[in-house]
Nucleic acid binder design. Structure first.
Length: 857
DNA sequence: GCAAGGTC
């Protein structure tokens, strides 16, 4: 059998292109984690079986070791020295397993990852996943390509090189630095300020070497605006009547900031009374057509001209791409590859109802070769791939597609040419001028009309002739403050300062919006909030470096040394981390400088929130801070107790927890089907029993359960044997859908129901009952908890007209006929899964923790 | 609950 060659690309679309070119379209494709294309061919002159597949971006991502995940147990300073681990970035995709399986039996590995630093890093992630080792005649090759055209792919195949370890190491360095710096500052700031103020309205007070300088731009502009002092100015404008035109002339001095001087010049010119034509000049000007469209340019136009935010614009563009309407939308390049098929692309639009006529014109008159632009070697510029109409795409997608078409056609169109005529005048020693414009060739502006040069007619003049001044005015004005930065301007600043990449720029902007640091206002301007301003002003007080764009360039420069092989990876990481550790220590020491700004804007916890629930320790009322993360604050004990998030919280009948004496609360999720449950503020944050598997609201991470803010143990998970609110007392039977227990919702009247303490399954009980409660008895048949139902007198289903009924909801015919499973599967007594599951609910005493004893109560 | 970078 022919030897096998495994080839791996960065994304499925590239794998498909490579396989299509090398196989001439004759291949077999199967779908595993990603698609695998197989075909026969020749490799280095020998017949082989090719196997082409892909990853989906990075295979691994960096994080801290598990023992550093708990915010409360970790000092953020320790994070700088903390060990890091690489874990699969999308575990569900099983990319490692996939690569390992596909590599079996392959003698050669060819890496077709994108040709940038990140791609180089992914090369080594792929090598690690395949378990490929360059021995026993096995070899690893790197294909270098600048586009996925036939020419480039074949060229890469005949010039295979080795992957570049230094570039990959540079990415490893960046990952470690970004992680440690970002997480350390974020955790410290968040804990400090959320532990002090009650109305910060952001769960996380994040810091990052990209997001923070981005916020810095927006806040700096805010400061420029608020410190702006307008200045009055005066400008001299003579008017003339000539050949039926009234013309306003521009002053050579533009404007003066002194009224008296301006009026003095006015008098001088008035005295002269005439303007002499000094010079008439005519110049042929041209306005260049655009070069190829890259991502950043598209995002800027989407924001400024279409009102589409970068995140949304990217989503729409990706959809247009996967549907085949446009080429790959993530590219930095503005130069078309030399092999680009202009005719083919034009041809695709030739019958488009909107662009067809223009395309025909370009095809018949001969299109113009585009301007050169820059080629970063990633993907060609963004271009249309096939014809579409607004009906096919929907409004927003259409606007984006329409622009991509217009831009593409613009790049192949002639320049716009116009004649600019300037007439210069003199009067009383002062110079004035006027300008006329006449377009001779519209060129690309006829398909991109918003860029058109405006026509300005001026009459004919003769040099040396004198013209009477009709009147002369001094116009008074004042300088205007700049406006807030538009999203599009922020993108430009990020690009200019090397902050983020085409793919991550939208994410950073989105981040500072989501964290409530800025708000997108009219005209998509990013206006900083009080929180955003306080943060940046704080950094400016303590250590301005922290919010300047140089912080990113510094990191990029340092890892650049690793990429070029001029510095050792671990020495660079050590050096950079050390610098940031010092900054961090100083920041922590000086945090009161920033806090002074927060104090002026935000309310301390003790002044925030409404009085609710008595503290079990001091027996005084605590306060509920409603803003995220919602929490209770005991002013006497100076303790914070996080509550379940995103719901309403009420007192639960002044009942208290038998374990700690805290007053119980009821949490309700919004919506008619939202569940309600009691919880004890203390137990919720510090579960008194070990072995509680899934805490409510906890992130679903494999392995250890961590108590994040807002996650904890409600009463429905509590294994207390006698407390009337625990799972033991309120549990009825096993959930038919998962391993959870159905518990009685004690406040669900009149729509009584049971809900699962693990999944979102629930069961409605007889509606309108006066009272439904659990009893201490169990069903002898299925071990479910016996319920006591007090029916409403008017609607009682009991034949004798009585209201009290006791029974098992599974085995009692009457009760079972009145209950209804509201979600998912049917809810039958004999589910064929045996009685065993029925026992799991409250009957399963094995679930109790062995540590639990009455000593604790 | 944390960063920034890939990609879906």
């Amino acid at each position: 059998m022919a030897p096998k060659v495994l080839m791996v690309a960065e994304k499925p679309s590239i794998a498909l292109s490579i396989a299509t070119v090398l196989s001439g379209g004759r291949m077999s494709t199967r779908r595993v984690s990603t698609e695998v294309h197989e075909f026969e061919g020749k490799f280095l002159g020998f017949p082989v079986l090719y196997r082409v597949t892909s990853v989906i971006g990075h295979v691994f991502s960096l994080d801290f070791h598990g023992r550093y995940q708990d915010w409360n147990a970790t000092n953020p300073l320790d994070l700088f020295d903390a060990p890091t681990v690489k874990a699969e970035s999308t575990p569900k995709a099983h990319i490692v397993r996939h690569l390992n399986q596909e590599a079996r039996g392959c003698g050669h590995l060819v890496l077709w990852l994108d040709c940038d630093r990140e791609g180089e890093n992914i090369c080594f992630e792929v090598i690690e996943s395949t378990g490929f080792q360059s021995k026993d005649g096995k070899k690893i090759y790197r294909a270098r390509f600048s586009s996925v055209t036939e020419k480039d792919i074949l060229n890469a195949m005949s010039n295979l090189v080795e992957p570049n370890k230094n570039e990959a190491l540079a990415v490893d360095a960046r990952q470690e630095i970004d992680l440690k710096v970002g997480v350390a500052f974020t955790r410290f700031q968040t804990s400090y300020f959320n532990g002090k103020y009650g109305n910060l309205d952001s769960r996380v007070i994040s810091y990052g070497p990209c997001q923070t300088p981005t916020l810095g731009f927006c806040v700096q502009r805010h400061l420029d605006i608020s410190t702006f002092k307008p200045e009055k100015f005066w400008a001299l404008h003579p008017y003339i009547l000539h050949q039926g035109y009234e013309l306003k002339l521009q002053w050579e001095r533009h404007r003066l900031f002194d009224s008296d001087t301006a009026h003095m010049f006015q008098n001088i010119v008035k005295e002269d009374g005439r303007l002499k034509v000094i010079r008439i000049s005519e110049k042929q000007e041209s306005k260049s057509r655009p070069s190829g469209l890259n991502t950043v340019k598209l995002l800027k136009i989407a924001s400024s001209a279409m009102g589409l935010g970068p995140q949304l614009a990217m989503q729409l563009a990706e959809r247009l791409y996967t549907q085949g309407y446009i080429s790959y939308p993530r590219t930095e390049s503005t130069a078309y590859p030399s092999s680009f098929d202009y005719k083919g692309t034009l041809g695709a639009l030739a019958r488009n109802p909107e662009f067809g006529n223009y395309v025909q014109l370009l095809l018949s008159d001969g299109y113009h070769k585009p301007r050169s632009g820059t080629d970063v070697g990633d993907h060609p510029p963004i271009t249309p791939m096939c014809s579409a109409t607004e009906d096919m795409l929907g409004h927003d997608s259409w606007k984006l597609y329409q622009y991509i078409c217009q831009h593409f056609l613009g790049t192949l169109s002639p320049e716009c040419k116009y004649i600019k005529r300037t007439v210069e005048f003199e009067s009383g020693g002062e110079s004035f001028h006027c300008v006329g414009q006449h377009v001779t060739t519209k060129g690309f502006t006829s398909i991109m009309p918003w860029l058109a040069v405006s026509e300005k007619n001026i009459p004919q003049f003769t040099e040396g002739k004198k013209i009477d001044i009709a009147r002369i005015e001094v116009e008074e004005g004042s300088t205007q403050p700049p406006d807030y930065l538009t999203e599009s301007e922020v993108i430009s600043l990020m690009e200019k300062n090397g902050i983020g990449t085409d793919a991550s720029i939208p994410v950073h902007i989105n981040n500072i919006c989501e964290r409530n640091y800025v708000q997108v206002q009219a005209g998509r301007r990013l206006v900083p909030t009080v929180l955003g301003i306080s943060l940046i002003r704080g950094y400016q007080c303590i250590d301005p470096d922290l919010c300047l764009p140089d912080i990113r360039s510094f990191i990029e420069h340092q890892i650049g040394l690793v990429a070029k092989g001029q510095a050792d990876h671990s020495l660079v990481v050590q050096h950079v981390i050390e610098q940031f550790r010092r900054k961090f220590t100083y920041f922590v020491k000086q945090i009161e400088d920033m806090d002074a700004l927060f104090e002026a804007e935000f309310s301390p916890l003790s002044d925030t929130g409404r009085v609710l629930s008595k503290c079990g320790k001091c027996l005084r009322y605590m306060k509920l801070i409603a803003s995220q993360p919602s929490r209770l604050y005991c002013g006497t004990c100076e303790e914070i107790y996080y509550t379940p998030q995103k719901g309403t919280i009420k007192l639960y009948k002044e009942l208290t927890c038998p374990l700690d004496n805290f007053e119980l609360l009821i949490f309700s999720l919004p919506g008619p089907e939202g569940k309600s449950f009691p919880f004890c503020p203390y137990c919720y944050n510090s579960p008194p029993f070990e072995g509680i598997g899934n805490l409510y609201g906890a992130a679903k991470t494999a392995g250890a359960v961590t108590l994040g803010k807002g996650a904890g143990m409600p009463c429905f998970q509590c294994p207390h044997p006698t407390c009337p609110h625990s799972m033991i007392s309120q549990g009825v039977c096993a959930c038919p859908e998962c391993d959870g227990t159905l518990v009685l919702d004690p406040v669900s009247a009149p729509k009584w129901r049971l809900y699962c303490n693990m999944c979102n399954c629930f069961v409605s009980l007889p509606e309108g009952a006066h009272r439904i409660s659990t009893t201490k008895d169990h069903c002898p048949n299925c071990d479910s908890t016996i319920l006591e139902v007090d029916f409403n007198k008017k609607t009682t289903p009991l034949k004798d007209g009585g209201t009290l009924h006791v029974g098992c909801i599974l085995c009692d015919e009457l009760l079972h006929s009145l209950v209804e499973m509201k979600h998912g599967r049917s809810f039958f007594r004999n589910r064929g899964r045996g009685r065993g599951r029925g026992r799991r609910g409250r009957g399963n005493r094995k679930q109790q923790d062995p540590k639990m004893s009455f000593r604790d109560f």
